[in-house]
Nucleic acid binder design. Structure first.
Length: 777
DNA sequence: AAAAAAT
């Protein structure tokens, strides 16, 4: 009896409020932090070899990152759902406003240690104090980079001799380092897109781009409508300064008078008009320009996307054209390019609709958007920076330490100061690089500063909004942010679907400062008048590129349009690329873009491999791979298949649970928690779990279905190899998919050997047992 | 195809 026979009721069921489940977790949460709520974990099947008593696995209050792990600062360790799991689970419902201390009881907050309070109050709701030039990050030495990129020490990791050192300077072309000769990868021409390595060539034939015919921002109705807002005391004239240089960020002029000078502005990407200057590293790009050059990436901006050189396979799944078919395909790609991003945008709305159509077309085409040009931050240069020196207050610093973040990771060191300065920031940090804290900590600090000296009134409207693509991710983000917020007396609440609204609405009525949620419910409550977004001063889009995809883009636009246009916007993703252009152009002001140098996904601790299999062997091979000790995450393309696989594994005696959108939220949460807590070692998920979700110690990711998009590949892979640990990613493909797979890996910049595998092959043992104790015995 | 609001 397959679970995946989804009765019509299955769907309906998922909307049933699961009070029972909720209440349980609520009550659990009321336990003291010390008490384990996981008392029942593992008790289910003591006979299973994966069985572990829950307590054995959750050392109380273990530091999320040991000194050693931090030393290997290659992988970010954003959120640990497990290490702090119990504690956090327990904290969360503390959030039930009932046990909230009365104002007067609240421990007197000392703001004294906070910097320059006088500056803060100047601007009504969001003061954006001027910030001094950020120490450390600014002064970079390009030349050092090539050798010392590995400031991230991979000490505990065997050096991969078969892989050339991957500094960007001497990075060999793909063809040279193709190490899996056995698999006869098709010849690759130099790939233009992702790495954007052929910078110079392209920037030179870059088509001159005219922005002139583009409607001015303030001509748009929205702007005018909004002008009556609390920022209307700003002289209108200030909105005018504008020249023809339009970058991503120049879409709107920088008119925030309280912004810092150009110190960060200069770090932003210039468009073609400036590209020459920037490439030479003059202007504010000086220090960064050097980095960029040695990074061997072109200085590219959003606006000026050139026609693709020629070999980008904008492939749709359907067609597997012969090689000589390429030209035609590329023409199409180029056409799409021009229409898409470089075209005349005088009719924005029509263009937006076009974008939807185009997106529909591209849906399965795995179109590679240009990587955003970013300021590459050197890991070693921020090694000595502390959270407080970046501008965070003592309480927040302590809260971070409690979370196991004693000192900032590179992406955090890079973004915290600019965020505090009020800039719009785009940041790319690879999976698990600590992005949540990178935006969360400064966000809390900013909200706090804007509230300084004010009462936190009952029923106040939220000041910050964090948007995530999945409920699980929203929850996880809250688990990280909430303790930080609470450390300074601010409140967060989650606003996402699949659960009863009552509690969320109740929280809003009492007043919260920071909202973390998913688009649907946020829009819903806003429409109902239960959520006021007008006072939002900071908006974060986590997984921003994903949020810019078809299906997410429009809700995002609707929500962002409800927010004050002057609110600060932060876009984060491991695969941040031009896909976010639609949002950036409309909503961001002169954004700065950051990434950490040398942190591409392939430089991590993950071993990738592809197994070429016969379709009829698939089920058996999957089962043998999953039959192991470590935690295994299996990705399936559809909900039904995920469900089926989970059942199949269960039937084979391997405890497994599923995670996908056909389950009701209570079950989703429960199943994920089972995996996190180790009660189950196999989780079969759809791409709902592809992004952002952190589960400790997943050492094997199996892609039962290969992803269609290289970004999906990167995100799925990123569920393992976290915290500098080893991890393996195995992708199963049928013979006829080899070529497509090769191309996708190419786009992902990942080297993976292909192996033909049949049931019972030793390789399967090797893979599934690699991290298990039984291999060496 | 998945995700994201319910109904």
């Amino acid at each position: 009896m397959p679970k995946n026979k989804k009765p019509a009721g299955g769907r309906a069921q998922s909307f049933e409020p699961r009070y029972g489940a909720k209440k349980t977790s609520y009550q659990d949460a009321k336990r003291r932090p010390g008490q384990s709520s996981a008392g029942t974990a593992g008790s289910k099947s003591p006979s299973h070899r994966g069985y572990r008593p829950a307590d054995a696995e959750a050392p109380a209050k273990k530091q999320r990152w040991g000194a050693q792990e931090r030393a290997g600062r290659d992988e970010a360790r954003g959120i640990r759902s497990q290490a702090g799991g119990d504690r956090r689970r327990d904290d969360r419902p503390a959030r039930s406003f009932d046990d909230r201390p009365r104002r007067d009881d609240r421990p007197a907050r000392s703001f004294d240690d906070r910097p320059r309070r006088d500056d803060r109050d100047r601007n009504s709701s969001t003061s954006r104090p001027e910030r001094r030039e950020r120490p450390g990050v600014g002064s970079r030495d390009a030349d050092r980079r090539s050798d010392d990129r590995p400031a991230r020490s991979f000490d505990d990791r065997p050096r991969r001799d078969d892989r050339p050192a991957r500094s960007f300077d001497d990075r060999p072309r793909r063809d040279d380092r193709d190490r899996n000769s056995s698999t006869s990868r098709p010849e690759r021409r130099e790939r233009p897109g992702v790495g954007s390595r052929d910078a110079d060539r392209r920037s030179d034939d870059r088509p001159a781009r005219s922005f002139d015919d583009r409607p001015r921002r303030d001509d748009r109705p929205r702007r005018d409508d909004r002008s009556a807002h609390s920022f209307d005391d700003r002289p209108r004239g200030e909105r005018q300064p504008r020249d023809d240089r339009r970058t991503f960020g120049d879409a709107r002029p920088s008119f925030r008078s309280d912004r810092p000078g150009r110190s960060y502005d200069d770090r932003t990407v210039r468009n073609s008009g400036d590209s020459d200057r920037d490439r030479r590293g003059t202007s504010g790009m000086g220090r960064d320009g050097q980095n960029l050059r040695s990074y061997d990436r072109p200085v590219r901006s959003y606006g000026d996307r050139p026609a693709r050189p020629d070999d980008r396979p904008a492939r749709s799944h359907g067609d597997h054209p012969a090689r000589d078919d390429r030209a035609r395909r590329d023409d199409r790609a180029r056409r799409d390019d021009r229409q898409g991003f470089s075209g005349n945008r005088s009719d924005w709305n029509a263009d937006a609709k076009d974008a939807a159509k185009r997106a529909a077309y591209e849906q399965h085409a795995d179109v590679v958007h240009e990587k955003l040009q970013a300021q590459a931050v050197q890991a070693e240069e921020v090694a000595d920076v502390s959270f407080s020196s970046l501008g965070l207050g003592d309480n927040i610093v302590r809260a971070l330490a409690d979370l196991g973040a004693a000192s900032p990771f590179p992406i955090q060191a890079a973004t915290i100061a600019p965020i505090l300065s009020g800039k719009d920031v785009l940041a790319r940090g690879r999976t698990g690089s600590g992005k949540t804290i990178a935006f969360g900590a400064p966000l809390v600090e900013s909200v706090l500063r804007s509230q300084a000296g004010k009462r936190r009134e009952f029923g106040r409207s939220p000041k910050a909004l964090i948007l995530a693509p999945t409920r699980e991710l929203a929850l996880q983000i809250d688990r990280t942010i909430q303790p930080i917020a609470r450390s300074v007396g601010l409140f967060t609440t989650q606003i996402y679907g699949g659960v009863p609204q009552a509690r969320q609405v109740g929280a809003l009525k009492k007043g919260v400062d920071i909202i973390i949620g998913t688009p649907g419910r946020i829009e819903d409550l806003e429409k109902q008048g239960k959520l006021d977004l007008s006072e939002i001063r900071i908006v974060v889009l986590d997984e921003a590129d994903h949020m810019s995809e078809l299906g997410f883009l429009e809700p995002m636009q609707r929500i962002l349009r409800l927010v004050d246009p002057d609110a600060q916007k932060l876009l984060f993703s491991a695969t941040l690329d031009r896909e976010v252009a639609a949002l950036v152009d409309e909503f961001l002001v002169d954004p700065a873009v950051y990434e950490v140098a040398g942190e591409d996904q392939d430089s991590g601790t993950i071993d990738h491999r592809v197994l070429v299999i016969d379709h009829r062997d698939k089920a058996e091979i999957l089962t043998s791979l999953v039959d192991r000790d470590g935690k295994t995450l299996v990705f399936a393309r559809t909900r039904a298949y995920a469900e089926m696989l989970a059942e199949q594994f269960d039937d084979a005696g391997i405890r497994a649970v599923a995670l996908h959108g056909d389950l009701n939220q209570a079950k989703r949460t429960r199943n994920l928690e089972k995996m996190t807590s180790g009660r189950v070692n196999v989780l079969v998920a759809t791409d709902v779990a592809a992004r952002g979700i952190h589960v400790d110690d997943i050492d094997l990711v199996i892609q039962a279905d290969a992803p269609d998009e290289y970004k999906t590949y990167l995100h799925r892979s990123g569920r393992t190899g976290r915290a500098g640990r080893a991890g393996t990613v195995v992708t199963l493909i049928p013979r006829q998919r080899r070529r497509r797979m090769t191309e996708m890996l190419d786009r992902a910049e990942i080297d993976a050997p292909f192996d033909d595998v049949r049931v019972g092959d030793d390789l399967l043992e090797e893979i599934s047992g690699r991290q298990a104790a039984n291999v060496d015995r």
